[in-house]
Design a protein around this nucleic acid. Structure first.
Length: 575
RNA sequence: GGGCCGCUAGCUCAAUGGCAGAGCUGCGGACUUUUAAUCCGUAGGUUCAGGGUUCGAGUCCCUGGCGGCCCA
C-alpha cells in the first residue's frame, strides 16, 4: 500500500508554500525565508487577529516541513499610538491618547508594566499552546534603539517621492476624517477590530501644512503624537516640531529615537528591512489607497525591494458567545477559544478554510457538532477514506514540523463529556464513576485519560451554556407533583426505587428504567417494545425528569441517576 | 462612484484545465435510546446567467446579476 503523502499537500497552504519558496529563491537564494505577521496590542488580540498569525504560521510550517530554513516574524506594533479608551476602562485613560502603547499604563489591576504588554501576554501564551513558533519583534524596541535610523533618514530624504505616490490615491478630503470608529460591542466589533490587524487602515499619512513628512515625533514633554513637523533640513537632519501641548523644539533626527514613520511608510520600510516574502493582511487592505496597495508601490519605488506575497484574509466570526464578552467589553480571544476547545481543533478551523473564506468559531451548541466532525475525520484518516484536502488540514492541525501537539488519550465525544460534567457539576469523583461505567470492557480509570478535552467541555458548560439549558437537580423534593400523582405513577416510582440497589450501574439502570413500564404493563423485562409501551416509557421518563430536574427531558436517565446518587434519588422521588 | 472577495446538493464547503465530491440535514433501516445518542444504507446538481478560449471549463478570459466587505 503506497503512502499517499503527496496528495496530502494539495491544499491552499501547500500552494502558497510553493509560491513563497520559488519567490524566496528568486529574491534571496540561500537565505532563510521570512514570513511575517503584524499585531497591534491596542486591546484584546482576538480570533480575527489570530488569522493574521495562523496564515503565515501554516505556510511557514509547511516550508519548514519541506526542509527549508524559515523564520516567522511577529511584529508587535506596540509603538503605535493609543487611539481610544475601550469600553470598560476608566475614562481617565483618555489623557494617554496619542502616546505609544508601551507608554500607556496597563488597565487597572494588571500585572503588566504597560498597555501593550498587558494585551501581548495572553496572546503569547495562546500561541505557545497552539504550537506556533515565532520571533517577536517589538517596534518600540526597534524604533527607540535607533535600529531604523538609516531607513528613517532615507524616507525623509525621499519624502517628495513618497508624497507623490500617496497623492495618487488621495481624494478631495486630504487627511481624511478618520477616527469615528464604531463602538459596537456585538459580534460586529470582532469583525471591525479584525480590520486593525496589522495597523490602522485610515491613519494620518503625514501630510502637514509645512509639507509632507513621513516621520512623526512623539512629543518629548507629553509623550503624545499630537505633533506637527514644521521644518526639516536634510543636511543637518534638524527637525522642528510643535505639539498640541504647547511644547516645540528642534531635534537632530540622526540621533532622535522618539518617533516613528507613518504607517503607510513604516510597513513597506519593514518589508524591505526584514526581507519579508509572505505576509497576509485583512480584507480592508484590498482597496485602492490602502496600506498594502500603497505600500507595494513605496517598497518598490522608494526602498527598492519587493512586496511580500500577501493574501487577503476574510473575517473570522463567532457564533453564540455567551454574555460574558459584552460584560467584559471584549471580543473573544484565542485564549477564550482554547478554554473550550483543544489546540488542534482551533488550528483545524484555520487550516481547513482558505484565507479568503470567512468562517465562524462556535461558542454555542455548534461546537458539539464540530467536535463530532473532527473525531469522524480522525477515524477516516485512520482507515484511509479521508479526502486529500481533509488529510492535509488534519495534518496541519495535529502538529507542526516540530512534532505533534498534546492529545487527549481517550477522546470521548465532546457532547458526552459536556453532558456528564453538566450533571456532576464538575465533581471529579462522580465524573470518574460515570466514565468508568461507560465502557466496562475498557474502563476509564483516571480523569487524565480524558483530559484535556474533559476540562474544555466543563469550561464550555459553565461559561457558555445558558442557565436554562443546564441541568439543575432539585434541592428539595417536588412535593406538589408527588402529592398529585395517580396510583400508576406511584407504583412506577416504587418499582424504580426498589430496583436501584441491585441495578446501580449504567447498564443495570438502563434495563431498570426501561423495565419499569414493562412490568407495569404485565410484560417480561426483556419483552420487545410495542408502540404503546414506548409511549408509556416516554411518560415514565418525563415524570422522573420532572421530579429530578424540573423539566420533561434531560440527560439520559441512567447517566443522570448515577450522577445524582442513590440517596438523593430516593429523596427526590419520594422514597 | 471606485475596488477586493465570494456565488457548486436544503445548509457548510471540497474538487493542478481531465469521470462534480464530502460532512451535516432529509429519507429508509437497526438498536429497549432520553437536552440534536450511535451505527448502516440512500437520495440529493442547468456548478448565479450569458458569451469566449480549449480536444476538454466549476476552474482561464469578457459582460451582466446577486451577496459580503473596504475606500470614497
Amino acid at each position: 500500500m503506497p503512502i499517499v503523502a503527496m496528495s496530502a499537500e494539495a491544499d491552499w497552504v501547500s500552494r502558497f508554500a510553493d509560491e513563497v519558496i520559488a519567490e524566496a529563491e528568486r529574491r534571496a537564494p540561500g537565505e532563510p525565508i521570512v514570513c511575517a505577521s503584524g499585531l497591534s496590542p491596542s486591546g484584546p488580540i482576538h480570533l480575527g487577529n489570530l488569522r493574521e498569525v495562523m496564515t503565515p504560521h501554516l505556510v511557514a510550517d509547511e516550508i519548514r516541513r519541506r526542509g527549508h530554513e524559515v523564520v516567522h516574524i511577529i511584529s508587535w506594533d506596540d509603538y503605535d499610538r493609543f487611539r481610544k479608551v475601550p469600553a470598560g476602562v476608566d475614562s481617565s485613560w483618555s489623557e494617554h491618547i496619542g502616546k505609544p502603547l508601551t507608554s500607556v499604563p496597563a488597565p487597572p489591576g494588571s500585572a503588566y508594566p504597560n498597555w501593550a504588554e498587558h494585551f501581548k501576554a495572553p496572546m503569547i501564551a495562546a500561541l505557545a499552546e497552539l504550537g506556533i513558533e515565532f520571533r517577536g519583534i517589538s517596534q518600540t524596541a526597534q524604533y527607540t534603539s535607533g535600529v531604523y535610523r538609516e531607513q528613517i533618514l532615507f524616507a525623509m530624504r525621499e519624502r517628495e517621492r513618497i508624497d507623490a505616490i500617496l497623492d495618487r490615491y488621495r481624494t478631495k478630503d486630504k487627511p481624511a476624517a478618520k477616527q469615528q470608529q464604531k463602538l459596537d460591542e456585538t459580534d460586529a466589533a470582532a469583525a471591525q477590530a479584525a480590520a486593525e490587524g496589522s495597523g490602522a487602515a485610515g491613519e494620518d499619512d503625514g501630510k502637514a501644512a509645512a509639507g509632507y513628512f513621513p516621520y512623526k515625533p512623539y512629543c518629548s514633554v507629553c509623550e503624545r503624537d499630537l505633533t506637527t513637523v514644521t521644518a526639516y533640513d536634510d543636511d543637518t537632519t534638524e527637525l522642528s516640531y510643535t505639539c498640541a501641548c504647547g511644547h516645540s523644539e528642534t531635534v537632530r533626527l540622526a540621533e532622535h529615537d522618539r518617533g516613528k514613520l507613518v504607517w503607510k511608510v513604516d510597513w513597506p520600510m519593514r518589508w524591505a528591512f526584514e526581507g519579508v516574502v509572505f505576509e497576509p493582511s485583512g480584507v480592508d487592505h484590498s482597496s485602492p489607497g490602502s496600506s498594502f496597495v500603497v505600500g507595494g508601490q513605496i517598497v518598490k519605488e522608494v526602498f527598492g525591494a519587493d512586496q511580500p506575497i500577501g493574501p487577503m484574509y476574510a473575517f473570522v466570526g463567532i457564533s453564540g458567545m455567551a454574555k460574558m464578552s459584552s460584560s467584559k467589553g471584549a471580543v473573544p480571544t484565542p485564549a477564550d477559544a482554547l478554554e473550550i476547545m483543544e489546540a488542534p481543533l482551533l488550528r483545524w478551523l484555520y487550516a481547513r478554510r482558505r484565507p479568503n473564506q470567512s468562517f465562524k468559531i462556535a461558542f454555542d451548541q455548534e461546537i458539539q457538532r464540530l467536535y463530532d466532525e473532527w473525531d469522524a475525520l480522525h477515524r477516516k484518516i485512520g482507515d484511509g477514506t479521508a479526502l486529500p484536502a481533509d488529510v492535509a488540514a488534519h495534518g496541519r492541525a495535529v502538529g507542526t514540523a516540530s512534532g505533534p501537539l498534546p492529545v487527549t488519550p481517550r477522546p470521548l465525544p465532546y457532547r458526552t463529556l459536556a453532558s456528564i460534567v453538566d450533571v456532576t457539576t464538575g465533581h471529579d469523583e462522580q465524573t470518574l464513576r460515570i466514565l468508568r461505567d461507560l465502557d466496562p470492557e475498557h474502563p476509564i480509570t483516571s480523569l487524565d485519560e480524558v483530559r484535556p478535552r474533559l476540562d474544555r467541555a466543563e469550561r464550555w458548560i459553565t461559561t457558555q451554556v445558558p442557565a436554562e439549558q443546564r441541568t439543575r437537580v432539585r434541592d428539595e423534593p417536588a412535593t406538589d407533583i408527588l402529592g398529585s400523582l395517580g396510583e400508576g405513577d406511584r407504583e412506577s416510582l416504587r418499582l424504580l426505587l426498589a430496583g436501584l440497589g441491585e441495578h446501580w450501574s449504567l447498564d443495570g439502570l438502563t434495563s431498570l428504567v426501561y423495565g419499569v413500564p414493562k412490568i407495569q404493563a404485565g410484560l417480561a423485562p426483556d419483552a420487545k417494545p410495542t408502540p404503546e409501551l414506548k409511549v408509556a416509557q416516554r411518560e415514565f421518563f418525563a415524570l422522573v425528569y420532572r421530579l429530578l430536574v424540573g423539566r420533561d427531558t434531560g440527560p439520559r436517565l441512567p447517566t443522570l441517576l448515577l450522577a445524582v446518587g442513590a440517596d438523593r434519588v430516593r429523596e427526590l422521588l419520594g422514597g
